[in-house]
């Protein structure tokens, strides 16, 4: 069993009379984790509490074996944090800001400058690194913030909404790089996002947060797997006849949607039935099965089902 990288027990954080996080407990080993929830769910508060920026009203937090409440500076020295929002060092270029962040983390001037170049290239910011940060777009700022989070080569990364403000190509690139950090370089990564597809693209495990509480936790595969008797059938044919033939076999049609020239059925099998019954029913309805797979739920569906309402 891998040692715990993050351990939270009964964490409660209050801002005045408002409770932002209540009774949250979880522990994480090495890997990639997603904190998933709507705005105001408590994701940022948990990250800030782990960095010792927010004093918890109750509970305990340990990061890399260190107590985050009593030894926050040691925790921050070992963690790279990409904060949410438009934050930057005023009056500096991207390059100066990353080098400065490195020096604040204890790097020597020479190493900080060398490292700033390397990390800005890695983050995908080219010659723009010599321009003042005041003129940066949100996407460019995100890249600089990623470089700042990585400049001191921390083993643990907290990324708070890392794809905010990035165009689709930039978003894909950012997620690929983040994923690469975990898979190729062995970094442990906690990604907080309200964009479910970002978490799906990067993380192995996710925590669903709602109104300051953990609703569900699990491997993404487990979270998104549907009931074992549910299948997804891609078929060619007439919708009404196929539906009638399936129902005649005792197979319940849960959902039908068009997928290009085909129909995508989500069906529930009766006890004892299998793929054979589906093939027979579709054939009887005058159609052809193009594919048959075990159904999976998207994270959106999981979230919607757990929390209720729109995601």
């Amino acid at each position: 069993m891998s040692p715990k990288v993050v351990e939270i027990r009964d964490l409660t954080v209050k801002y005045g009379s408002f409770t932002a996080v209540e009774g949250v407990s979880f522990s994480l080993g090495k890997g990639t984790f997603g904190l998933l929830g709507r705005n105001g769910a408590g994701k940022t508060t948990i990250l800030r509490a782990l960095l010792g920026l927010v004093r918890p009203s109750g509970g305990s937090l340990r990061v890399l074996g260190l107590d985050a409440a009593s030894d926050p500076l040691a925790v921050r020295a070992r963690v790279g944090y990409l904060p949410e929002g438009q934050v930057f060092f005023p009056g500096m270029t991207g390059f100066q800001a990353v080098a400065f962040a490195g020096r604040l983390s204890g790097l020597s001037r020479r190493v900080a400058r060398k490292r700033a170049h390397e990390m800005l290239y890695f983050a995908g910011l080219g010659e723009a690194r010599y321009r003042p940060m005041e003129g940066y777009s949100t996407g460019m700022l995100q890249r600089v913030k990623l470089a700042m989070a990585l400049v001191h080569d921390p083993p643990l990364l907290f990324l708070d909404e890392p794809t905010n403000g990035l165009d689709p190509a930039g978003r894909k690139q950012m997620l690929e790089r983040v994923r690469d950090l975990a898979s190729a370089k062995g970094k442990t990564l906690i990604l907080s996002s309200h964009i479910l597809s970002d978490v799906e693209a990067v993380c192995d495990e996710a925590l669903l947060l709602h109104e300051g509480r953990v609703l569900e936790r699990g491997l993404l595969g487990e979270l998104t797997s549907a009931a074992p008797s549910v299948r997804e059938v891609l078929a060619a044919g007439e919708e009404s006849s196929l539906r009638a033939a399936l129902e005649e076999q005792g197979i319940s049609v849960l959902r039908v949607e068009r997928a290009g020239p085909f129909l995508k059925f989500r069906v529930g099998l009766p006890p004892g039935a299998g793929g054979r019954e589906i093939f027979l029913a579709v054939s009887k309805g005058g159609g052809v099965v193009r594919s048959l797979v075990e159904a999976r739920r998207s994270l959106e569906e999981v979230f919607g089902e757990t929390v209720g309402g729109e995601v």
């Binding site: 438009q86 934050v87 060092f89 700042m148």
Partner: peptide, 18 residues
């Protein structure tokens, strides 16, 4: 003032700087 306005305070305090 500028550190507050630009959000740089958050960047400082997420580094090992009290």
């Amino acid at each position: 003032s500028l550190d507050r306005k630009s959000g740089a305070l958050e960047l400082y305090f997420t580094r090992p700087l009290s």
